[in-house]
Design a protein around this nucleic acid. Structure first.
Lengths: 114, 114
DNA sequence: TTTCATACCTAGATACTCTAGGTATAGAGC
DNA sequence: GCTCTATACCTAGAGTATCTAGGTATGAAA
């Protein structure tokens, strides 16, 4: 795994507030993943511009599981600590699609207001 | 003043969290305005898709004034209640430009993560 | 055996927003 | 006069996502 840190500009996390759930759901929609992997993937995919805080991520995973958007199970492989995997539920997939739509709509409105 | 309420889709305010300051600064950058006027303008410009909560707006105005981004003065004209006008400061203008840049950057990152 | 990356977790603080109230004025209608 | 509505301001306290600042444990490398 290669992680490229370019980070021309660091993102203020206030601007991404509320999008954490959607980011996580998107990744899980592409396949089961464990927490640590999710945070690394987000750093990687944003090319280092955004690093998801661990506490924020675990808080997010707890919330999504409580709302039955994802389910968790313990994995066997260890590469250090034990891995807890998460898989998206049908409800989570629906939420992801809806969040994406809301985001597209929000972008349109914000272009008029900012 | 004509306000058109079309409101195809209502916006979840979570997605706009953190943008209130920038919206207000943008309007004040175009000229002094009073609070009630600001909230009506935002409803109008978003064609009814987003209505800025009054409490949120006053909280925002307090914050911006405390941070010396805007200044306030009482107006004479009354059309009901007394009007308290706000004007943007140099510091507020700088913040607006910076927030706009951050937003453009955030959009790019989010397109990779959502 | 020490260090580092992996991998998980939590309590409490912070900060923006919302709920749910409140006050006061001016004008229109009866 | 009286009521109703729109205008115009304000606040206390609750809610909630995020961050700070810790913590535990494993395995591999030095």
């Amino acid at each position: 795994m290669y992680i490229v840190f370019m980070s021309e500009t660091k993102l203020s996390s206030d601007l991404l507030r509320g999008h954490t759930d959607t980011m996580v759901l998107k990744l899980l929609n592409e396949g089961d993943k464990y927490g640590y992997e999710i945070s690394k993937l987000i750093t990687e995919k944003s090319r280092g511009a955004y690093q998801l805080n661990e506490a924020t991520m675990y808080s997010c995973l707890k919330r999504l599981e409580r709302e039955a958007c994802i389910k968790s199970y313990w994995g066997d492989e260890t590469n250090g600590g034990r891995r807890k995997y998460y898989s998206i539920t049908r409800h989570g997939q629906d939420l992801y699609v809806q969040n994406k739509e809301n985001w597209e709509n929000a972008k349109t409105i914000l272009s008029k207001l900012l």
